[in-house]
Design a protein around this nucleic acid. Structure first.
Lengths: 321, 321
DNA sequence: TTGTAAGCGTTATCAC
DNA sequence: GTGATAACGCTTACAA
């Protein structure tokens, strides 16, 4: 391994001179700098991260945490985060596994972006208390070192119910998600509150967990309870809605006609199934980009406000037929 | 920040004793160890990565590199890699951006797994020459510090053509992928060689780049050239095949009847479109898991053999109707 | 069993 | 402008 001492020796200067040359200090002749740079290049010098980080106390790396790697969903978020961070000289790594939570206190990363319901809020607060900077995308957390960028679940869920109500249905099902997921909790709570406003419509919650399989289970229940009257279904995410399709396509019930179905998140599959799945869309890229901006502002010691990413209703065949 | 010196002071011992205690050395009384561990815990001690890495010359972190973050595709690979690495005490980070290529020589990661056609082979060889260990999933590279885990593209592409040939078609289109992508090149080369064997079938290559849009372009050409005779189409990946559906659904040509279409990679969407997309499937989880095993073996100084992940034909409506 | 001290590769504060 | 040198937090011979 070649380090700055090797370069120093080759160049016949001291290691501090090399360091200055490498880091573009102005205390050095342009001539010696060029000479040193040339030697560094010839020797294939690459600075050692550990040594550098130890001294600088920062790595210029941001870590992002997801609940799981599933879903094309995350790709666009990563692009939003990654390209924004890049502009500011930061690198992005996607971390997996419980042990990687330590990257923050271990100082491997300068900041963390979290969209991972398995990450405990106490743990986040704990790190924040110790001066680490964090952006959360999946919970509310009030702390001077933490900023939030949340989806406007309230707007979406309210609209979803209002939209179904307009269809004059006697019954509306809400297929819930896992209780640990913030997005799920808020969507459910909002939907139920909104449904309370309307007397002539029965509200039924079917327990789900954001997986396709739980959507299938919900579909079975809906078929069993079916009484020839059109019903509404608000699946709290598209994946479960797609599970509902899986079952209903082999049943006499027609999506769009007998069942007005609406999901959330605008999963790509929703545009390929028949009829198309109505859902709520939002820019995942922007969501990520805003999160990246927040973490940079936090690291810059700025006062950071929280943000909301708005969603819009996407009408397709599953509610319109 | 609390370090081992703080613990040492609290415990009234030297820093080496603390280090021994923390690292489970047998040179220490169980009693003092417990006492030190307790204090470390009370002080919320977390070892500093940089200090540790600087001394140990390793981080127990493996980096994985993807071309882009697109696609649910990668999720399963990451799970395969991640869970395998975890069993062996390694962490996994997904790296993005050109600068992150330096993580290997910078010694931030102990090894790299590459599925990223934008990563130059010369760069890989260069690092390997310097003693770094790498597993490639998207190219052939013969080097003692590099191991490969490739898809059996040859088997798949051969079967794809043979299968289409059985349908007695006068013409078979091959929609190609980007030339930089290894999987694309091999599939194309294999398909063309296989097609050469059959005289009574015209082979036509339509240039694509693995994107949906290029599939749409190909579809337009196919429609233009259509002469009432059934034709075969081998799209070198499912994404392009799905692009073909996009266009053909608004044309008189029927997939499965007029056009026998087959893709590659078993994208989830293929099972939701109508008719279902015939394709080649393989375990992405296993692909990742095997790559993880290879990198661990390389790091253990073992002699590592290359591996192949086999694919199987999945028949659905797009070729069967 | 525990302590002392050197060293990992870098940066940055001093003198010169 | 350049060079010694200390420091970053940790591991590990070696000494006691």
């Amino acid at each position: 391994m070649v380090g700055i001492r090797d370069i120093a020796q080759q160049a016949g200067v001291s290691i501090s001179t090399v360091s200055y040359a490498l880091n573009g200090s102005s205390k050095i002749t342009e001539e010696t700098r060029q000479r040193i740079l040339k030697i560094a290049d010839e020797l294939n010098y690459i600075p050692n991260m550990a040594g550098r980080a130890l001294k600088r106390k920062q790595t210029d790396i941001i870590g992002i945490y997801f609940t799981d790697y599933g879903g094309y969903f995350y790709g666009q978020i990563l692009e939003g985060v990654g390209s924004t961070l890049k502009k500011h000289g930061y690198e992005l790594i996607a971390c997996s596994g419980k042990k990687s939570h330590l990257f923050l206190p271990e100082k491997l990363i300068d900041g963390a972006i979290i969209l991972d319901s398995s990450y405990k809020s106490e743990e986040i607060t704990h790190y924040a208390d110790r001066g680490h900077h964090i952006v959360v995308m999946d919970r509310e957390l009030d702390h001077k070192n933490v900023s939030q960028v949340l989806l406007d679940n309230i707007g979406g869920a309210t609209l979803a119910i209002d939209y179904l109500i307009q269809k004059n249905l006697a019954k509306i099902y809400v297929v819930s998600g896992p209780d640990i997921a913030y997005d799920s909790r808020i969507r459910l709570k909002t939907a139920l509150e909104e449904l309370e406003r309307y007397d002539n419509c029965e509200a039924v919650v079917l327990t789900g967990d954001f997986t396709k399989e739980s959507g299938r289970q919900a579909a079975k229940t809906i078929i069993q309870e079916w009484n020839e009257e059109p019903v509404g279904v608000f699946a709290l995410n598209d994946e479960m809605a797609i599970g509902i399709y899986d079952i209903l396509k082999d049943s006499p019930l027609q999506i769009g006609k007998d069942i007005k179905l609406i999901g959330f998140d605008n999963d790509e599959i929703g545009s390929y199934i028949t009829p198309g799945l109505s859902t709520f869309e939002y820019s995942k890229y922007k969501w990520g980009a805003v999160a990246a901006e927040k973490i940079i502002q936090l690291l810059d010691g700025k006062n950071v406000k929280n943000d909301l990413i708005y969603t819009t209703l996407l009408r397709r065949g599953s509610t319109e037929k």
